[in-house]
Design a protein around this nucleic acid. Structure first.
Lengths: 248, 248
DNA sequence: CGAAATCTTGACCGATCTCAACTTACGTGG
DNA sequence: CCACGTAAGTTGAGATCGGTCAAGATTTCG
């Protein structure tokens, strides 16, 4: 897979402005932008080569907006380096952090399969490289290799499940519980046995959990006073009593 | 399309218990259980016939549970008659109404494309007929006719968009606003120019909007006092000032 | 018609937001 | 590598929103 040459994916970008094009490191880093994606990682070499032919690469600098609400977008963006912040504005103008994309994650899917515009914002949190596939190229590919559709459907199902679960939490749980559940989920996908590192600032966490930084600060202090957790330096938190935490 | 015979879809049900099988009215009513579904309504006669061969039909009486959290489900359910209530229980045991299915709507999709169990509950709100397709049959069909996958992807995109928008509302808007937005959306899909009929009881509406019946009652009374709406008999509400309503 | 469910209204209280002041951490440029 | 400015985080006090409990009115449906 790593033999795929840059020439296949470097042609020209879709964006004709501001963005500097990916400058082409070693080919392995390019390959990863596709092969790393769960949707595609079962492809055979030939199919992989085919989809990489229609893939373009672009870079965004920290803080740059990749798309915004109202954009007519028909690109699927796959993160190959960096982090992207996906957020929405509610009807009354308040911002909510929806998710953070890491290398291998993708976005743009909501506008990809329907005639519509973006309803969210995507912003590079650091210098970021993305690969892009246009709607037409992707759909052609899906019709040719239908198993990929099933992969995408599976991914959509998961995301839908997550989103609906999240909605139910917002609808029925108070901040304590939402925060505790968030910490518990960090544990699952986590590093050390009983220590986690928050994947975002507390400000972003507040936005993600639908509350304010002040409340996050207080609730974490409460959890610490009650002996469930211990806040360490940086964004690290030691979980002292996971079971207790989940009964909050 | 209407010539499709009952024999194609009446064989035996997947459920070998309690549920009485669909008793077969005229074939037109059967055809509608499939042809009415947006995913399938572009099919040619031949394909339609093929999918109806693997479709089974079952009835549920009011109050019966169609699936529950934890069920290993690999069926797609399509409502042909009646109403189905989809709800979830949060981690702390509180119920939230997720959606109400009407004829033509489908459910079960979340467990269909991934190895997983149901995480929601589906309950017949009235005597209900559903058509069912098994995961294997559906996937086979999708691989054979890839354009249907694109239809389903489109449907999933829409639902994901709706769900994420809903999450953001819960995260950032207060009850007043959520209620006002709900009423406004009833208008869009509504009957009369300035009159809507709530599609559910106020108790269910409270559950759907993540609040309590008491609060719904009070907020509607407030909106009425402020001259934005007028509550009529039944579940009808006259919208007097839509613009004002949306600024609440 | 009557039981049960839904809906309404009031009183009270707790959770969380807002505003404000302050401290701490971080990135940038000299 | 340090100093500074800005952003992030903390903490307190007060206000508000919305939930809970309770009683009563109304509707629905068998």
């Amino acid at each position: 897979m790593h033999e795929i040459k840059n020439q296949y994916i470097e042609k020209q970008g879709y964006h004709d402005v501001t963005h500097t094009h990916h400058q082409g490191h070693e080919s392995a880093s390019h390959a990863s932008c596709i092969t790393v994606v769960p949707i595609f990682n079962h492809l055979e070499g030939e199919q992989m080569e085919e989809i990489m032919k229609v893939t373009k690469s672009t870079s965004f600098k920290k803080g740059e907006v990749i798309y915004r609400e109202g954009d007519i977008s028909d690109l699927l963006y796959i993160v190959s380096k960096g982090k992207i912040r996906i957020y929405r504005l509610s009807e009354s103008g308040k911002e909510q952090l929806v998710r953070i994309l890491n290398p291998g994650d993708f976005t743009g899917e909501l506008a990809l399969f329907r005639e519509s515009i973006q309803e969210a914002y995507a912003e590079a949190m650091s210098d970021t490289d993305v690969c892009m596939i246009s709607r037409n190229d992707l759909q052609e590919f899906l019709l040719k290799y239908p198993t990929i559709s099933l992969k995408i459907l599976s991914e959509f199902s998961n995301r839908l499940e997550t989103s609906e679960k999240q909605t139910t939490r917002f609808a029925t749980e108070k901040v304590d519980t939402r925060l505790a559940l968030f910490l518990a989920e960090c544990m699952e996908s986590g590093d050390g046995p009983m220590e986690i590192e928050l994947p975002m600032s507390k400000k972003d966490l507040a936005s993600y959990l639908g509350t304010t930084p002040e409340t996050i600060s207080r609730k974490l202090a409460d959890l610490e006073n009650e002996g469930y957790i211990k806040q360490k330096s940086g964004r690290k938190i030691e979980i002292l009593d996971l079971d207790g935490l989940l009964l909050v």
